Each structure stands twice: as structure tokens, then as C-alpha cells.
Amino acid sequence: MRVFPVYAPKLIVKHARIFLTGVIWVKDLGRLEFEKGRFLLPRKSLPKVKQAILELNELIEAQN
């Protein structure tokens, strides 16, 4: 598990694309899981977490 002390979308996306499957922890967002290079949306999450995951997945799609 990698810990990101700040929310840096480009760096987080780079990590997810390299490792494809895993878990990261982002300060103020908490634990985020990714599989096959995409972030998974938890069943229950705060609106800011949901927005961050959608933003990260959009960045991943834009890079493909």
C-alpha cells in the first residue's frame, strides 16, 4: 500500500497504471482500491471521495 500525503491526481494515476491492482491511501480521502488500472467506487463513500475517483478514472481514460 502506497501512502500519498496530498491529493496529486497525476501521480496517483501513474501509480495505478504501473501496478494495475492494489490499494493506496490518500490523506483526506482515505483508502482507494484499483483493479486493472481503474479505481473502484466503494458502495458507500463521501461525495468528495466519489468525485476524486471519477476524476482519476477520467484521467486514466484520457491517457489511453
Rank of each mutant, 00 (worst) to 15 (best):
E55W: 06
L20D: 14
R43S: 10
N64T: 09
R17Y: 08
V13S: 09
K14N: 14
A16Q: 02
V23Q: 14
F4A: 00
V23I: 13
K10G: 14
H15N: 03
F34A: 01
K27A: 14
E33L: 10
K36G: 12
E61M: 09
E58Q: 14
K50M: 08
W25A: 04
K10M: 09
H15M: 04
K36W: 10
F34Q: 00
V3M: 03
R38K: 12
I12L: 05
L59R: 05
F39V: 02
E58P: 01
R2I: 15
E55Q: 10
V49E: 04
L40D: 04
P9T: 04
R43C: 06
R38W: 13
P42W: 04
P5Y: 15
W25K: 06
K36A: 13
R17G: 13
N57T: 03
K14P: 04
A8V: 10
P47I: 11
L29R: 03
I53M: 03
I53T: 05
A62G: 09
Q51I: 10
P5Q: 15
G37L: 05
V26N: 00
A8F: 08
K27Y: 14
L40I: 12
R38E: 10
R38D: 03
Y7N: 03
A62T: 12
L59C: 04
F19T: 15
E35C: 08
V23H: 10
F34G: 01
Y7R: 01
F4D: 01
L20E: 14
R31V: 10
K44E: 07
K14S: 13
L41Y: 11
L56W: 02
M1R: 06
L20S: 09
P5E: 15
K50H: 10
I60D: 03
N64Q: 12
V6P: 02
E61D: 13
A16V: 15
E58S: 13
K44C: 07
R17F: 10
G37R: 04
K14T: 10
K50V: 08
N64E: 14
L11Q: 10
E61N: 10
E33F: 14
F34Y: 05
K48M: 10
K10I: 11
I24A: 05
V13Q: 04
I18V: 12
L40K: 11
